[in-house]
């Protein structure tokens, strides 16, 4: 912690850090959507947003203003307290998971000693808000989507956890900072077989746990129109979108941290945060690439993929990692 903060009370430091982080996330996420739109446009031989500002750089701002100005429509038959609360309940865990991520050595809100556990536990809590949205809307499409959500997220959180535990075993720590530091010599993705498999499983289960295409059966606009958020408009819709993208970005950071060596890279140490950002964005673009090239798979196929393939595979991989760690004497 820099010396200037040393004589401030701890709560004030935490408040300032959270304030900076929250606004950083909101702005960052807005620009991540622009990145995705540009990237998707190039994949589809289009140009993408170009009109607002140079090269469309002000597009996210325009979108935010538009969403704020929109009328907030509440369906007459909606369960109002649940309906109104859902976007916030959905957003909070998505924001909270950023707290544990160390963006550079020592630069994070809270580098908990059970950081990864906190991340995984809180990130799976978004399902509560999601189901509230689906239920409270009192819409058949939304209800179907919410039921799918519960199925899918519960099915994919387990492989997600198992895949994330592979680097934990390799590093011998649950603290995200220490997992990152343990990769100073060798990134975990370069670890023979285990690293690559772990990364692939991690990406697969992240895509699914985040409801991104080809696993976006919650949104499924060709069947369920927009799924659980079909009745939302204006700022509430924006909060849900923000939460979703925040979750994707946080998972990209986690992927870069667990497998791509976080802030390690050439150049002076202060470049670490930049390296981390670049790696996280590479993970994000990988997920985006998957999203824009596959068709959506069906709900039963998604569940079968999780329980019949991904779960056993990640479990075996986890066991294998444990054996390797004991064998090579890397364990603590």
């Amino acid at each position: 912690m820099p010396a200037a903060f040393a004589d401030m009370p701890a709560w004030l430091v935490a408040a300032i850090a959270s304030f900076i982080l929250l606004n950083g996330i909101a702005l960052g996420v807005a620009y991540v959507t622009l990145l995705e739109r540009k990237f998707a446009a190039r994949m589809q031989s289009r140009i993408g947003p170009y009109r607002v500002g140079p090269h469309g750089l002000l597009q996210p701002i325009a979108d935010a203003i538009k969403l704020m100005m929109k009328e907030d429509v509440v369906p007459t038959a909606a369960d109002k307290p649940v309906y109104n609360l859902a976007p916030i309940v959905f957003l909070i865990p998505c924001m909270l998971i950023f707290a544990t991520i160390p963006f550079a050595p020592g630069l994070g809100v809270a580098d908990l000693n059970i950081g990864i556990l906190f991340f995984l536990a809180v990130s799976s809590m978004e399902i509560v808000g999601l189901f509230m949205a689906g239920w409270g809307s009192n819409n058949k499409y939304a209800l179907l989507s919410a039921m799918r959500a519960v199925n899918q997220i519960i099915s994919y959180d387990l492989p997600f956890v198992f895949a994330s535990l592979v680097p934990v075993l390799l590093a011998g720590s649950l603290r995200l900072g220490e997992i990152a530091a343990a990769q100073a010599g060798l990134w975990f993705i370069a670890y023979p077989v285990i690293g690559q498999l772990g990364f692939i499983f991690f990406i697969l289960s992240t895509v699914a746990a985040e409801n991104r295409a080809p696993f976006d059966i919650l949104e499924a606009e060709s069947e369920l129109v927009a799924g659980f958020r079909v009745e939302y408009s204006g700022m509430k819709f924006a909060l849900i979108q923000l939460g979703e993208y925040a979750h994707v970005v946080a998972s990209s950071f986690l992927g870069a941290l667990l497998f791509l060596g976080a802030w390690s890279g050439p150049g002076p140490e202060w470049l670490g945060a930049i390296w981390f950002l670049i790696k996280a964005m590479l993970v994000f673009l990988l997920v985006t690439w998957v999203r824009w090239s596959f068709v959506r798979i069906r709900v039963d196929q998604i569940l079968a993929l999780s329980w019949k393939a991904l779960m056993p595979a990640t479990l075996v991989l986890l066991l294998l990692t444990a054996v390797v760690v004991v064998w090579t004497g890397n364990g603590r």
């Binding site: 589809q44 295409a213 606009e221 824009w292 090239s293 596959f294 068709v295 959506r296």
Partner: peptide, 10 residues
């Protein structure tokens, strides 16, 4: 099958 926000749109 692929959605307006997925591979189908491509």
């Amino acid at each position: 099958m692929g959605g307006a926000l997925g591979g189908g749109a491509t």
